[in-house]
């Protein structure tokens, strides 16, 4: 920040660079919108068909109750299993990736695995899993497990890197074995945050499990996609409402679980 030589005090000084930035942003919006062929006519035309579309979505109607129930259950199963397997895999990987506890030869491969797991969108991973294990829930579980390993592994490693080493030293000084150092020196310090990531990931897996079905990896997404293709828009609306309800319930439960595990005195949002 440059030191102002202006001795006259001005309230709310203008910032020419900031203004130039906003102008540049506006110019980009115009340019990019032109490149993507956004025209007012198209938008108006879309609004018209949008009104028709929404008109056909209401009232929502459950056309195939079994298929809806099966899809929702399958999404839930995919989310739970993927979170569980993902957490089980990411615990050792996250531990190995923590640079304050592990030597470099252990952190590099672990970090590479985490980076690889994070680099592709779950849908792309799901496509590859569909090819590998065929259509169905297995592929969804695989894809979301990969996503969970990437996310939890990274955050878990970062959480361990931020711990206080004093407690670790104290446990080590008692002659504790390596496992005991981890269990009594490291884990208690990161457990609260770990619950936070785990519930967040379960939540996120639940959202994503409603989507992987679009590429054939099981769950409610498949039901939704086929309803779309048959133009059963009232069923689409019903499925969407069910998904939103399921995810809202999941979010409330996740917040509650976090509240139970996070130590008192720490402030949690509502």
């Amino acid at each position: 920040m440059a030191v102002s030589t202006d001795t006259r005090r001005v309230a709310f000084r203008t910032n020419p660079w900031g203004r130039a930035g906003w102008l540049l942003l506006a110019a980009y919006v115009v340019y990019a919108a032109g490149r993507l062929d956004f025209t007012w006519d198209r938008f108006v035309l879309g609004l018209d068909s949008g009104a028709k579309f929404i008109g056909r979505m209401f009232p929502p109607e459950i056309l195939q109750p079994e298929s809806l129930a099966k899809g929702l259950m399958e999404s839930l199963e995919i989310a739970i299993l993927a979170s569980f397997i993902g957490i089980v895999i990411s615990l050792p990987i996250g531990l190995l990736a923590a640079r304050n506890l592990m030597p470099a030869w252990a952190t590099w491969p672990a970090r590479a695995i985490i980076a690889a797991a994070r680099s592709f969108h779950p849908v792309i991973v799901a496509i590859i899993f569909v090819k590998a294990v065929g259509f169905g829930a297995m592929a969804g579980i695989g894809a979301l497990t990969v996503a969970s390993v990437g996310f939890i592994g990274k955050l878990f490693a970062e959480a361990i890197e931020e711990i206080s080493l004093k407690q670790v030293e104290a446990v080590r000084a008692t002659g504790a074995s390596f496992m005991n150092v981890i269990l009594f020196g490291v884990m208690p310090q990161v457990f609260g945050r770990f619950i936070g990531f785990a519930t967040y990931q379960l939540d996120s897996n639940l959202r994503n499990s409603t989507m992987v079905g679009i590429v054939g990896a099981g769950g409610i997404g498949g039901t939704l996609f086929s309803a779309f293709q048959r133009f059963d828009y009232e069923f689409v609306a019903a499925i969407l409402l069910c998904i939103i309800a399921m995810i809202m319930v999941g979010e409330v439960l996740a917040t509650w679980v976090r509240g139970v595990f996070v130590e008192k005195g720490r402030v949690e949002d509502e």
Partner: peptide, 14 residues
């Protein structure tokens, strides 16, 4: 919450 609950791929379908 409604915006976050619907996945981007599902928004895209709509």
């Amino acid at each position: 919450v409604s915006s976050r609950s619907v996945n981007s791929l599902i928004w895209a379908l709509l």
